[in-house]
Write a protein that binds this DNA or RNA. Sequence first.
DNA 1: CTCCAATTTCTTGTATCCAAAACCGGCTCT
DNA 2: AGAGCCGGTTTTGGATACAAGAAATTGGAG
Lengths: 244, 244
Amino acid sequence: MAVMSISRQHPETPAADGDPARLDGEPLSQVATRYLREAILEGRLGAGVRIRQEAVARELGTSRIPVREALQQLENEGLISLSPRIGARVARLDFEESAELYRIREELEPLAIAESATRLTDAALGQLRELMLQIERSDDPALWLLLDRRFHLASYAAAPMPRLLKMIEGFWNSTQQYRRIYYGRVAREREDASPQELPMTHLDHRLLLDALERRDAVDAGCVLRTHIRRTRLALARNQELFTQ
Amino acid sequence: MAVMSISRQHPETPAADGDPARLDGEPLSQVATRYLREAILEGRLGAGVRIRQEAVARELGTSRIPVREALQQLENEGLISLSPRIGARVARLDFEESAELYRIREELEPLAIAESATRLTDAALGQLRELMLQIERSDDPALWLLLDRRFHLASYAAAPMPRLLKMIEGFWNSTQQYRRIYYGRVAREREDASPQELPMTHLDHRLLLDALERRDAVDAGCVLRTHIRRTRLALARNQELFTQ
DNA sequence: CTCCAATTTCTTGTATCCAAAACCGGCTCT
DNA sequence: AGAGCCGGTTTTGGATACAAGAAATTGGAG
């Protein structure tokens, strides 16, 4: 209790912390949201971990109010699960929920890429190609994860459907932790056991980029749908990822 | 300012208000969320209307804190738009945003009904048929709106995809105000001008129910996709709904 | 009369404080 | 010995208080 007094931090606290980038007059709740979201996406907060309001507030040097709003925001994004009077935990997807997300993505991402395909600038296509090559070269699973995400999201970015793009980003965020685990394992096994998983993905990327460079919306949609479905089925073959 | 002291309500306030159903230990923020959501869906709060935290708090006899959480929740649902330091307004969709929602629905609702079609019980089918007949008989646009919504959501309900169903309900909520305006006008014009709009919808419903009774997932999906697309195109022909 | 600006008012964002529910430990009773 | 109960502790939900930013209004100048 006496410790409480330590937490008394005044608003102007410019305290040397590199935590979040707090720009101009941005509400602290948004700072807290970004802070927690990044912690979850980077895996610093693993699935199921409890998040205490006061602990986060202390880390950020704020009161619990902005933290509470951040938690609610993240619950809406599907990154944490929040039970009244119990508390917040990093969301843990079971296999069915995960499969459902992939099934939804299978419908929405082809739409996004189809709408994007005809609108991508040559510059954007160049960046996509560059990203694809980097992905093929990368062998660090964390880097791979980051680049793959960037590649796909960039391929949708020209679609004039902001709400759709937000939803898709949310899906990627929700499943990020599992992709991390999965590709971490794939990378570990690559030398000996399953050498076809990643190359298959690389092939899909090439087909996708080819369709995009031809501005072929239909083809891009089909390739992407297959790509996502393949991933979903791979997930089904690795259900033990969820049983932990 | 002196008035402020009046608003001083203690937590136990059993004040006689029928506002929201506040059950057991439910957080007030959820009560506030339901309260505002209903107000918006029923049209008591029209598009663009500003929502003041303190006003809502006073109506509910709470502080602003639960109201703020409700506002954030409703923003995630797309029912209000919330700008930092400015305030909250009931969301106003322009034509493009609305078309985007319909385009997304065109992908997701066929999925939902396909997954639902093979799982609907005979009892559920009976209720659907009853709903359909009520819809055809109803001439009050408000009732029509309610029943149509119930019919479609009920047709998806058997799909084992809770997240998808929540998203779909959110889309219906987001566009509810515009449907209200649109069908209100259609009803007014029915006697003289455009007598084909509603019967077309009734026909779609019959085709849909037929497919469902045959448990034909593919057919149901196709019919539904066409139904939604038709609605989207009707929307495009009535863009002036948004220019107000 | 209109337009700009300074002040006033209002509203939001956040800190602090309080009550009550959930958790945790030991204790008792069977 | 194990299960249930009871008190202290922790943690959340909510209220109130206050500071800072936006909006509104009034006063003045052109």
